[in-house]
Design a protein around this nucleic acid. Structure first.
Lengths: 173, 173
DNA sequence: CCTGAAACGGACTGCCGAGTCCGGTTAACA
DNA sequence: TGTTAACCGGACTCGGCAGTCCGTTTCAGG
């Protein structure tokens, strides 16, 4: 069952890649047909792997969150807690700006996959930075992602770095 | 032409009110049927006044922007420029939090009505506050609405005031 | 090769929402 | 109160999308 036929595995890969691009570019409203076309398969093939459009979206988000978890792990392994925090924030921002539609996808399927794991990691990064006196004490971990993300989604094209600076300044101790 | 029959004017009013509530609550995805039902009219009546769903959305936004323009006028008439700016920001925030779906509507119909007028007013409020040394000099007027709005749309239920505080702190000189 | 199980893809269904149309209704005014 | 033009609302069309089904193709093992 875990053993997928070679062509099946290949198509699954293509579908996930195409879906990631599509959702990242246009949010939750892209049609399955569009994704299937981009992947070079029939849309029946998509539905065999992911019985529901939401299932597909969920899988895409899971991948994305996994990337952020990796970044978080790196941040926890870094020496300077303050620097690690602000670097992490900027990296998440970069990642987010390359995938403007995914935020709405996350909102769409309320309980985001692996969200708890990511939250735990971010909590540790924030706590560490606060303990080191680099971040104001009245900010809670979950706020950071949201504040950063929100600054980015609102910024006019090409100016998000300035927005991010403002928000990060607001977070400094 | 400006003279509408009494029942027509009454229904137009109802439609606009219902549409405002609906768009504010659920964003651009509410159906015309839903709005018409809430207004107590047939959806044919809605389409007679607003040939397109976007036309209706546009009208709703125009109303909303007009309210914000009024707030902006008040802020310009106030004595302390810094205080006026931060009060204005909080008032806009309050207004925005009562209409969580309207932001997406504005995004949906790109060129927002009366946007230029509002922008001009906000620009004067910000400049005045900057001249008074209450707001950092490297922030541009348009940033303020977006930053404030974005902090609000991302906040977990009931916590948006804390978010707003963080952002406003980031704007202080 | 040969064979069968697994996978493919496109035709098909059902649903829902935007926009149209017209027969019936009602406000306005003499 | 009678006439008429404006207005009403719901039945209708049309298009698009999620999800299903099945005849056909392709992989993999003997």
């Amino acid at each position: 069952m875990t053993e997928l036929r070679a062509d099946a595995r290949r198509n699954l890969e293509r579908v996930l890649d195409a879906a990631t691009d599509a959702f990242a570019a246009s949010g939750p409203d892209v049609s399955i047909d569009e994704i299937a076309r981009a992947a070079g398969v029939g849309h029946g093939t998509v539905f065999r792997r992911f019985p529901t459009k939401d299932d597909l979206m969920y899988a895409v988000i899971e991948r994305h969150v996994a990337q952020m978890c990796d970044l978080a792990q790196d941040a926890l392994a870094a020496d300077d807690p303050g620097e690690a925090f602000f670097d992490f924030a900027r990296q998440v921002a970069e990642l987010g700006m390359r995938t403007p539609g995914l935020h709405r996808c996350v909102v769409h399927c309320g309980g985001k996959p692996r969200g708890a794991e990511l939250d735990r990691l971010v909590a540790r990064i924030v706590s560490r930075a606060q303990a080191a006196g680099a971040v104001r004490a009245d900010v809670e971990p979950v706020d950071v992602q949201l504040l950063v993300r929100s600054a980015l989604t609102s910024a006019p094209a090409g100016q998000w770095r300035r927005y991010l600076d403002v928000v990060l300044d607001g977070l400094r101790a």
